[in-house]
Amino acid sequence: MNDKISCLTKIKTLYPEMTDSEKSIADFILNHPEEIYSLKISNLARETGVSLPTVFRFTRTLGYEGFKDFKVNLVKDMAVGLNISIEDMDEGSLENLTRNIFEIVEKNLKETRSLIDYDSLARAIKGIVNAKRLIFFAVSSSLSVAFDSYSKFLRAGFDCLYDSDTYTQRIKSTQCRKGDVVIGISFSGESIEVIECLKNARENGAMAICITTFMKSTITKFADIKLFTAPVQSYYQKIDLPSKMSLTAILDVLYLNAVLHDRKKALKYISKSEEELNKFSKIIKSSKLI
């Protein structure tokens, strides 16, 4: 796992796959990060009701040499503000709430950047640049993000496919072929519709890219390239604000790098798209429809 990923982000991304004992440790750390440095491994084991070896294995799973190494890195993360408490935000004024929301988004984007595997990112960009077709699969709240990215790639001259209907997506996935690149988007990594589409596309020879939050989620089993966004544990998750922002950032990185591979060609298509949209806008305004 990337050494630059914060301790708390590692815990949250691996949380769904943890055992009950590991989740007890994780819950305590996530709820009381400021108390960890002063605790001995025996204290943490007693507080969480697990054995000493379980705590040790927990820290090793996260990529640390042991409990002491974990504590040192956690303190470093907290020193640079990675442990902003978003459950205890002051909502007493418009200014405070606005500041808190921006802090959540900034924190999530920073943690998402720490999750980037640049080798995987480079492979994804190369695949998109060379793709015969670029196809998006998403459901629910991920649809709007997928459509935004699809629209950008389409205007830049890429042969793209997108449909909000899950049945149509399923049919398209069975028609994928070698040379196609598909992007499956699922915050949880457990959206069965997206998983099945990625599985079908991959079986038919397409390159499958998944963008998700959890590193060991089901969707990762059916992807050639895996890209991750940082999780958010807060009631603000109900509006998916931080997750959508970080997901859009990852897709924009893919888009901009793919476009810059042949800037002249992309600008030509973007210019044509804008001309056509302006022409269409004038037709609509001059019609009796408005």
Rank of each mutant, 00 (worst) to 15 (best):
N2C: 08
N2E: 10
D3H: 12
K4L: 14
S6W: 01
S6T: 13
C7Y: 04
T13R: 09
Y15E: 08
M18Q: 15
D20R: 05
K23G: 01
D27G: 00
I29D: 02
L30E: 14
N31L: 14
E35H: 13
L39E: 15
I41L: 06
I41K: 04
S42D: 13
L44W: 01
E47F: 09
T48E: 08
G49T: 15
G49I: 14
V50T: 11
V50R: 01
P53L: 11
T54D: 06
F56Y: 11
Y64D: 03
E65Q: 13
K71T: 08
A79Y: 06
A79N: 14
N83I: 07
M89W: 04
R99E: 14
N100M: 09
F102N: 10
E106Y: 10
N108E: 08
L115K: 10
L115G: 08
A122P: 00
R123Q: 03
G127P: 07
I128G: 06
V129W: 09
R133N: 12
L134M: 11
F136T: 05
A138D: 03
A138S: 15
F147W: 09
F153E: 02
G157P: 02
F158Q: 01
C160V: 10
L161A: 10
D163H: 11
S164C: 05
Y167M: 09
T168R: 13
Q169H: 06
K172C: 01
T174W: 04
G179A: 07
E193G: 08
C197N: 13
A201I: 05
A201H: 07
M207H: 00
A208R: 02
I209G: 05
I209N: 00
F214L: 00
M215G: 09
K216T: 02
K221F: 03
K221Q: 06
I225R: 03
K226L: 06
L227H: 00
S234I: 04
S234K: 05
S234W: 02
Y235A: 11
Y236L: 13
K244E: 07
M245I: 12
L247I: 01
V253C: 08
Y255E: 01
Y255K: 01
Y255F: 15
A258G: 05
V259A: 06
L260C: 09
L260K: 14
D262S: 02
R263N: 02
K265S: 14
K265F: 01
K268Q: 09
K272Q: 08
S273L: 03
E276C: 09
F280C: 04
K285N: 08
S287N: 07
K288G: 14
L289W: 11
I290D: 06
